[in-house]
Design a protein around this nucleic acid. Structure first.
Lengths: 209, 209
DNA sequence: GGCATTACGCTACGAGTCGTAGCGAAAGCT
DNA sequence: AGCTTTCGCTACGACTCGTAGCGTAATGCC
């Protein structure tokens, strides 16, 4: 996950079971203690490994929690529900369900907060968490364009800007609803949100006089 | 700010200058050290007060940083720029400018992360930070309805739901753009965002066949 | 003016966490 | 076999936390 892959095939290999046990223990500790009271020593005890083993694999608490939280987003999928609106509603509901879990709530925002002063951590988050979400947006958009539900955008720069905008709006709204407003992103809310988003993306532009 | 107001008018009053010095020192420490390395002892030294004075006024680091960050949002205003689109663009640009400052980046997300396990802190954030932003949404919407740019919504429940949605979309998108995607919410982005949002809010709803 | 009351600065303290070093044993590869 | 790397364990200095205790300063009430 984080170790160098180079051809160091000699010596005792690292226990793969330890990795999964540590990441599971990290999520368990996030639920029980939250980010601030979570200590690496406690995680090591929960995982049944020595504290030193943890420090050999992860540089610190942010990196460990980043990897532990990232696994939560592995289950995100983009099933074909027939229409763009239904596809969006499905993915957003999945995303909201993950964010509703306490280990995601406690961990995700804290790691993002740390990343504002740590470029390496920011890149780690981008690669292991954001990347996967962004890919769903790209897939969904391409599928909708094939269906003719969204206009094709020939200019690649303009297209990239649109994808970025969609991504920030969707992910940002769900996160803000769940973590800041503290209200559930339930089916009613998602339906409303999807309606507004789709109208915004598909409506003809007014002449902006 | 956080002390009880009751008629305890006897005894030496708390120094108001100390409050402002402490909050300013907190923001300064946020810039220099970030959330995780910020200690109350260091803040006390920067502010020129004793560490015990800090603990007499604030329960802990999250409460202190919450108050320090909240003051950043005092400057938010809603000038009348003539049209709803221009009003939104103005406010969003103000909001983005605040979020671009390092003390806001480091502090805001960390406090929100803490609030996921602390109801009192969540309420403190709501009252001192979120409340003010929400009021701008309400004002802007009422103004737009007076101008006829947005449809009047007679049902109060439906109206509240719409306002909540707008708020989460606007604040969430800007925060996500700035802190997660790590890209600036500049004029181009804000113009694009405002266009999509307004189209979503003003377009006639399709009959969802 | 004197008195009660509260805030302040300062020092010191136990408790807890951090990240690391050092050791012997275990588990692979050639 | 022999070599190499990981693992579990213990112990350690350094640091931060939040609080207690004390003498002093500033205000309101009489």
């Amino acid at each position: 996950m984080q170790s160098r892959t180079p051809a160091s095939r000699t010596g005792r290999p690292r226990s793969a079971a330890a990795d999964t046990a540590i990441l599971a223990a990290t999520r368990e500790a996030l639920v029980d203690l939250g980010w601030s009271k979570l200590t690496l020593g406690d995680v090591a005890t929960r995982a049944g490994v020595a504290k030193t083993t943890l420090y050999r694999r992860w540089a610190g608490k942010p990196e460990l929690v980043c990897d532990a939280v990232a696994e939560l987003f592995d289950e995100l999928e983009l099933p074909d529900r027939g229409s763009l609106a239904a596809d969006i509603e499905g993915v957003v509901l999945q995303f909201a369900a993950i964010l509703a879990r306490p280990e995601a709530k406690s961990g995700l925002m804290a790691v993002v907060a740390e990343s504002t002063r740590d470029d390496a951590l920011r890149e780690r988050i981008r690669a292991s968490i954001v990347e996967r979400q962004m890919r769903l947006v790209l897939e969904g958009r391409a599928r909708a364009q094939r269906r003719g539900e969204l206009p094709a955008e020939p200019d690649p720069a303009e297209s990239a800007r649109t994808v970025d905008l969609i991504f920030d709006v969707v992910a940002g709204a769900v996160v803000h609803r769940t973590l800041v407003s503290g209200k559930p992103a339930d089916e009613d809310w998602v339906r409303n949100f999807t309606r507004v988003l789709l109208l915004g993306l598909t409506s003809a532009e007014p002449p902006t006089p």
